[in-house]
């Protein structure tokens, strides 16, 4: 009788091999999910590497298991499909804040200069409050509706190419595991002790930073200079956009896809010519966040000009409320 009961228990508990691929009964898999009974102390990053192919996808597991303690035999849901590439919810949609800095110093008063301590506090705030600093490529994939992003995503950009980006901001960003897009105007690179050098840019590029164009001479692409004919004006825009791209491509051995318009100014013409030059994303300094359906050639950015934390926090809006029912 005991043998009979044991046999019944064994066979009734045997998973169906076609659906449940793992014979140890700790995993159940469908085309949408893995449900995994995690016994060991595995982190979301470990599981992301094991099942999703990259630790960078740990956020997908974290967000699918908001109140779950990993380990202890708890069921962990591992989503296998990115089904919400636009960050859409019943009550609104995700937006990505892009923060802009210029230069840094131990102590300074210009709005375009961020003191070291204030920057350190801002980065610490992002880390302690669960923000994910994303890369330029991740943002591009989001804007092309190819890949979702963590709920609290933010992108950091730095304009012009001041040496203090390398001396001050870079070590702080590295400390927190963050990167940024550095928009340089090529005529400024390496010209003085105030400017970053190509070697420094190469070093930061190797550490995962993205180098984008801020044109060659940082001239306004929306207004002709005094005495400039329309033809000369178009030629200047073309040189600023195509020329800077070629220089950066050659100096850093990359294909430069990202542009910040000088002064943040753009119009239909500069936008079109940026696209023709091969840029896939271009940024203004109009305030506000960027949903997935934002025009990638007119992205909004918030300049961080004040040092107080309240002002900084107010720039971190990652969701736009709108009833989507």
């Amino acid at each position: 009788m005991l043998i009979g009961i044991s046999g019944f228990v064994f066979f009734s508990c045997t998973p169906i091999p076609a659906v449940i691929e793992y014979p140890d009964k700790t995993h159940f898999r469908s085309e949408d999910f893995i449900v995994y009974f995690s016994e060991q102390k595995e982190t979301p990053a470990d599981l992301a590497e094991k099942y999703l192919g990259s630790k960078s996808k740990a956020w997908m597991i974290e967000e699918a298991n908001p109140n779950v303690i990993f380990g202890n035999g708890n069921a962990v849901v591992i989503p296998l499909k990115d089904k919400n590439k636009g960050g859409l919810k019943a009550n609104g949609f995700q937006t990505i804040p892009i923060l802009t800095y210029h230069r840094f110093a131990e102590d300074c008063s210009s709005p375009l200069c961020m003191p070291t301590k204030a920057f350190e506090l801002q980065m610490r705030y992002l880390k302690e409050n669960g923000y994910h600093v994303i890369t330029a490529k991740e943002l591009l994939a989001f804007l092309e509706y190819r890949q979702g992003l963590p709920k609290k995503s933010v992108l950091i950009t730095m304009d012009d190419g001041y040496r203090s980006i390398y001396n001050i901001a870079y070590p702080i960003l590295k400390k927190y595991g963050y990167t940024a897009i550095l928009f340089v105007y090529t005529n400024f690179v390496g010209v003085s002790k105030m400017a970053v050098t190509w070697d420094q840019l190469k070093e930061m590029q190797a550490e995962g930073f993205t180098i984008g164009s801020h044109t060659i001479y940082h001239s306004d692409l929306t207004q002709p200079k005094e005495g400039e004919t329309d033809r000369e004006f178009i030629a200047r825009i073309k040189e600023e956009l195509d020329g800077s791209k070629k220089i950066i491509d050659q100096k850093l051995g990359q294909n430069t896809y990202f542009l910040a318009y000088p002064f943040g100014y753009y119009d239909q013409r500069s936008m079109q010519m940026a696209s023709d030059a091969g840029y896939k994303m271009a940024m203004s300094v109009k305030r506000g966040g960027n949903p997935f359906f934002a025009n990638p050639l007119t992205l909004r950015r918030d300049q961080i000009l004040k040092r107080d934390m309240q002002s900084f926090i107010s720039r971190l809006k990652t969701f736009n409320h709108l009833s989507l029912k």
């Binding site: 005991l2 009961i5 044991s6 019944f8 228990v9 009734s12 508990c13 009964k25 700790t26 009974f37 016994e39 035999g73 708890n74 069921a75």
Partner: peptide, 14 residues
């Protein structure tokens, strides 16, 4: 064994 049958087939998650 009766307990196991009554509670279903236990897995690592209990």
């Amino acid at each position: 064994l009766l307990l196991v049958l009554a509670t279903g087939c236990s897995t690592l998650g209990g």
